[in-house]
Simulated assay, not measured.
Amino acid sequence: MINKINDLNTILEQADCLVSEKQIDSALDKMGEQITKDLQDTFPLVICVMNGGLIPTAGILERLSFPLELDYVHATRYGMETEGTSLKWLSYPQTDIKDRDILIIDDIFDQGHTLKAIIEWFEQQGANKVYTATIINKLHNRKINLTPNYIGVEVEDRFLFGYGMDYKGAFRNLKGIYAIKDS
């Protein structure tokens, strides 16, 4: 365990901070304003995509002062790995979805496969309209044909961690967004 902690501390010490806490707060303020404008009269069901969406969902919810409901899904392509393949559903929401406006909040929009599968599931369950929000939009050309409705910040194509995103299970708790040091 000591070796793992030392290795993780070395990763963090060598990492580049790409998005500061102040930049995240500013992005969340803008996202909160737009979400409020669009959804304040709809009594939306806000869905946190666990585990990565936990921190961004909390940050966005703090900026919303209108009636809403909160639930979560747990669907992952990564597990505790740094690369993912097929989507695995670990938990479905318990709230009635039919005819509801849904806001799905996740940590990162990378290629879009996970978010697309989650959107499709909600549509199949009878959701009225599905909106999506991610704190990060990773910039590259490997995306599917989908764009989140609300995006916090755009970040270069590197392995990211912090503010909900993990590195081998660690660092979701960091207030900034970091990238593994290029070698």
Rank of each mutant, 00 (worst) to 15 (best):
R158M: 03
K116G: 02
L90I: 12
E120R: 03
K116F: 14
G126M: 01
V153T: 14
D71W: 11
G112T: 08
I108N: 02
D99L: 08
W89D: 13
T95D: 02
G79V: 01
D101W: 08
T134W: 12
V155T: 14
S65C: 13
D71M: 12
T147E: 15
Y163K: 10
Q124H: 10
I105T: 04
T82F: 03
S86E: 15
T76P: 08
T57I: 05
L90Y: 15
N128A: 10
N149S: 11
I144E: 13
A127H: 05
G162H: 09
I144D: 10
V155D: 04
L61K: 03
R100W: 09
G59C: 07
D107H: 09
E120C: 07
Y92C: 02
Y131F: 15
R77G: 04
L146C: 04
T57Q: 02
R158N: 07
F66S: 02
I144A: 03
E123P: 04
S86T: 14
P93M: 04
D106C: 07
I108K: 03
A133T: 00
L160S: 00
L103S: 03
P93Y: 03
I144T: 13
F122S: 01
V153R: 12
R158H: 13
A133W: 13
D157N: 15
D96A: 13
E156G: 07
N141G: 13
L160P: 01
N137D: 15
I119N: 07
I135R: 11
G84W: 01
T82Y: 01
D106Q: 03
E83S: 15
K129P: 00
P67W: 01
A127F: 06
R142W: 01
Q111D: 15
I105M: 11
I144S: 01
V155S: 03
G84H: 03
I104V: 05
G59F: 07
P56W: 10
G59N: 05
I136P: 00
I119M: 12
T95L: 09
I118A: 01
V130L: 07
S91T: 10
G59V: 04
E123G: 07
T76F: 07
D71H: 06
I55N: 05
E154G: 10
I144K: 05
G52M: 00
I119D: 11
T85P: 06
T147W: 05
L70P: 06
T147D: 09
T114R: 02
G84Y: 00
